Computed example of a mutant assay.
Amino acid sequence: MAEGISESAVDELNALLDLRGPSPEERRRIAELVELLFDVDTAWVWWERAAEAGDPDAWDYLMELVKEENAS
């Protein structure tokens, strides 16, 4: 991953984490960035938070992760 992309992702992640009560979509974006910067296991809690808050895309992705985990 290019350094500029990492720095930009970190900056965006920090800005989102500073929000009080991020929206479901913002929680999904946090999950995406955490997964990009770290790994899916680290991002799992944010995928769950986004799905529980009502983000349908996060729910769909979380279900795919569960399917993959069960298939392993």
Rank of each mutant, 00 (worst) to 15 (best):
residue 62 L to Q: 06
residue 61 Y to Q: 06
residue 36 L to Y: 08
residue 29 R to Q: 02
residue 34 V to E: 03
residue 30 I to H: 00
residue 11 D to Y: 08
residue 64 E to N: 15
residue 19 L to Y: 01
residue 23 S to D: 02
residue 44 W to F: 14
residue 35 E to W: 12
residue 30 I to C: 02
residue 35 E to I: 15
residue 40 V to Q: 07
residue 24 P to Y: 03
residue 39 D to C: 12
residue 38 F to L: 11
residue 64 E to Y: 15
residue 25 E to G: 04
residue 57 D to C: 10
residue 10 V to N: 02
residue 25 E to N: 03
residue 7 E to G: 02
residue 45 V to W: 07
residue 27 R to A: 09
residue 24 P to R: 09
residue 10 V to D: 00
residue 24 P to S: 10
residue 17 L to F: 00
residue 7 E to I: 07
residue 30 I to K: 04
residue 24 P to I: 14
residue 26 E to W: 04
residue 14 N to Y: 06
residue 40 V to G: 04
residue 61 Y to N: 07
residue 33 L to V: 02
residue 13 L to R: 00
residue 58 A to R: 05
residue 39 D to Q: 09
residue 23 S to C: 09
residue 35 E to H: 14
residue 27 R to D: 03
residue 42 T to R: 15
residue 32 E to F: 13
residue 39 D to E: 05
residue 41 D to V: 14
residue 38 F to N: 08
residue 30 I to F: 02
residue 50 A to Q: 06
residue 32 E to I: 12
residue 37 L to M: 05
residue 13 L to W: 03
residue 42 T to H: 13
residue 41 D to Y: 12
residue 19 L to K: 04
residue 11 D to H: 04
residue 59 W to A: 14
residue 16 L to F: 01
residue 32 E to R: 14
residue 40 V to L: 10
residue 35 E to C: 14
residue 51 A to K: 08
residue 65 L to K: 13
residue 46 W to S: 10
residue 51 A to T: 10
residue 17 L to H: 00
residue 59 W to K: 15
